[in-house]
Amino acid sequence: MENKIIVITSRFGSLSEFFDLWLKSASRNKDVDFLILTDIDIKCNADNIMVEKYSSFKQFINEVNEKIGYNTGIVTPFKTADLRPAYAFLFEDIIKQKYYERYGNKGKYDFWGYCDTDLIFGDLSHFISDDTLDNCDVFQTWGHFTLVRNIDKFNQLYGACYKQYKLKKSLKLPENCMVEEGPFILQLHAAGARIDSDVRRIADIKRNVFEFTVDGQNYKGQRFIYQSGKIIRIIENEGQICVVDEFMYMHFMSKPSIASTTTKQNPALLQG
């Protein structure tokens, strides 16, 4: 793929119980680079997995405060998700350096993005192609995975007001405001960004529902299989296994006990 992509995530203090699965599935998607901001020793030999190590969460926040020009008031790693609209600005030097280390020239990434680590990636190249990216500026609009075209017009939106919203005010609040899913997407839309978002690409496990259900069509007894780097949904019909469709990734949301138990028993099979 000609378009170069960097997806940024962060883990401070401890790794989630999904992290090993996330890391292995991310490393198989060679067309996408992943940058992990962390204070943890993370080992991975895959070329597309890059780590920016901080001595502590406090050091990370101090550098964020200095770069953004005010005290954000962030005291917990969970709250850092609200920094996502500012990632391209906050980490522009790191992003440039990682590009140079990866590709050996002074070019730049065509898209930057962010993602959660409570998911397992399927084959991203099945959904993200040059043709797709050439015809959009924003790919997917969810906090668990979004790509944004790497241009100043969009990278500087974090500092702009949108109606009653302002990032600085949101960062002062103790709770996670999910600005990357709400106000930031509205800002991008207002700035003329071409948005390509389709919930049917994602196996997004519903909250407070035991079965693994997704937005859109669901099937009785559906199962989600991670096989050969793909997330595939299958059903059993009159004793025959039928492949229904393929997903970009499976997102576990707030159901760690179900997903963890299932994946530990059989990491290749997630059954609803």
Rank of each mutant, 00 (worst) to 15 (best):
S56Y: 13
S56T: 10
S56K: 10
S56N: 10
F57N: 02
F57M: 03
F57S: 04
F57L: 10
K58T: 14
K58R: 07
K58D: 12
K58N: 11
Q59N: 11
Q59P: 04
Q59D: 12
F60T: 13
I61G: 07
I61W: 04
I61F: 08
I61T: 05
I61E: 01
N62D: 13
N62G: 06
N62P: 00
N62I: 09
N62H: 08
E63S: 14
V64M: 04
N65Y: 15
N65G: 15
N65F: 15
N65M: 15
E66D: 08
E66H: 07
E66Y: 11
K67P: 03
K67G: 08
K67V: 11
K67C: 14
K67H: 12
K67D: 12
I68Q: 06
I68G: 11
G69F: 15
G69P: 15
G69T: 13
Y70Q: 13
N71A: 12
N71T: 13
G73W: 07
I74L: 01
V75N: 05
T76W: 05
P77W: 05
P77V: 02
F78A: 05
F78H: 03
F78L: 05
K79D: 04
K79V: 05
A81I: 08
A81K: 02
A81S: 10
A81E: 00
D82P: 00
D82M: 03
D82I: 05
L83A: 05
R84F: 08
R84L: 03
R84A: 11
P85T: 02
P85N: 04
P85Q: 00
A86L: 07
A86C: 05
A86R: 11
Y87C: 11
A88N: 10
A88R: 08
A88D: 08
